[in-house]
Amino acid sequence: MSSLLNAIGAEFAKILTTRLWWILALVLFGYIGLLAGGLAALFAGIQSGAISPDAAGTSSGGIPDFGTLPPLVYSFASSVGYVFPVLIGALATTGEFRHQTLTPTFLASPRRGQVLGAKVIALFVVGAVFGVVALAASVGIGAPVMNAFDVDPMLSDAATWWLIGRIVLAMGLWAIIGVGLGVLVPNQVASIVIVLAFTQFVEPLLRLAASFLEVTARIGNFLPGAASDALVGASVFTMASPTGGAAEALDWWQGGLVLLAYALAATVGGYAVSWKRDVT
């Protein structure tokens, strides 16, 4: 047990002693802050009548139900920001291969399964911290903007705080998916390309394509991004789906379990593919 705690401590130290984590956290904050602030202003402006829908170029159907605006804005933290925990998880893992630090790592902790377990736990926490950073941007900037347009930011609503909690959980799980991807595809460049291509193009397209038919929509619910949105319970992507969510989305806990299943399957698969191999 103490050796597992030592291994977890070492994994945290690895993250904190290089610059990557705060660079990613800074970019995440800026990106989500801009997006949440900008869209909060746009939608709240339309809602309050300060901006006309035609001027905004949006059809009235695309304007979200007024009651859901704050959760939509806040959930940018995960619906858009989830690529950041995936990246740090994948980089933390592929970096060990790239810089050949598996040698000192496995010399200090010869039980390799335990090392990978420690990485999963540490990165879950790092991902959750990224969730907090992203929320600091989406809530910290989105709420005052909505307030300025006389839209209630719903911060006294318990449901909002549940949403925030679920976003933190989702971001932690995404970081584990990153770790899993990193052991499945230890080549750092390949891993990053896969993260970006999948999260930015492949999955959004798959989700859109799947949403046209009820059957495929049901399967589409099990895509990781869809599961994440189900866990969080609000997302621009579900709002934008053409059937308007005709196929019932997963419950939040089902979404969480699907996401966890992806994370564990990738990690266990990667353990066999690369982690337990010869370190030469």
Binding site: G9, T17, P104, T105
Partner: peptide, 16 residues
């Protein structure tokens, strides 16, 4: 890891 200082490099494994 080229971005880590020598003390931090050793610190990681001291902890492990």
């Amino acid at each position: 890891h080229p971005g880590r200082s020598a003390a931090n490099h050793l610190g990681v494994y001291t902890r492990a």
